[in-house]
Simulated scan of single mutants.
Amino acid sequence: MDTLNFDLLAPIKLPLAKKIYKSHYPAAKPKSDERIITAQVGSQLCALVRFRSIENCRLMTGMLVIPDYRLQGVGHKLMQHLVQQELAEQDFCFALAHLETFYCQHGFQTIDKDALPNALKQLFLRYIQGGKSLVAMQYVDPN
């Protein structure tokens, strides 16, 4: 695979992100107030992840590796970039249960739902009550 480049999605490209999510992850709805980080090979987007600010923290959500780029390390490389350039102590994610180990490899630790900030806890509980199998996680900076 060619070199991956990472960038903040320019607001003018939000419709492209919406189209990609609609094709590959229809439940995700990117919004203009979210910080969207992309991975691309040449000019081709191959992965995206969104950060949603909620009170004094952020929820990392909607991580998507386009199917043609899966099983090639793109997700790991995107996470390595996020660890170096983006993630901070007040970043959380609600991982699908089968991806808990993946996020643990990149600095996230599983936490009890009661350790979530209140606004995130309420959101997490709504998702769980809706039948989603999620794990609450928080990024812990190794430094």
Rank of each mutant, 00 (worst) to 15 (best):
R50E: 13
Y69P: 06
S133Y: 00
I54Q: 09
E89G: 08
T101D: 15
R70C: 02
M79F: 01
Q84R: 08
A119V: 10
H81A: 04
P67L: 07
F51D: 13
G130H: 03
N118E: 15
L45C: 05
I111K: 01
E55N: 12
N118K: 07
Q80R: 09
G73M: 04
Y127T: 03
Q109A: 10
E55M: 07
A88H: 12
L82K: 02
H81V: 05
L59S: 11
D114Y: 07
L125A: 04
F124P: 09
L116K: 06
G131F: 03
P117K: 07
I128M: 07
K132S: 15
L125H: 14
I111R: 00
L120R: 02
L125P: 01
L96W: 00
G131E: 13
R50C: 15
P117T: 12
Q109H: 10
M79H: 02
G107M: 10
C104H: 12
R50V: 08
E55R: 04
Q129N: 14
A119R: 01
G75E: 09
Q105L: 08
Q85P: 01
Q84C: 08
G130Y: 00
M60A: 14
Q90A: 14
G62M: 03
L87D: 14
M79L: 14
P67Q: 11
S43F: 09
L96N: 01
Q85A: 12
C93R: 00
A97H: 10
H106W: 03
A97W: 04
Q72D: 11
L45T: 09
I66K: 07
L71K: 08
D114N: 06
N118I: 12
A47E: 09
Q109M: 10
Y103Q: 03
A97Q: 12
H106N: 09
I128H: 09
M60I: 11
S53A: 14
Y103L: 08
A97F: 11
Q129Y: 11
G73F: 04
R70E: 15
F108C: 05
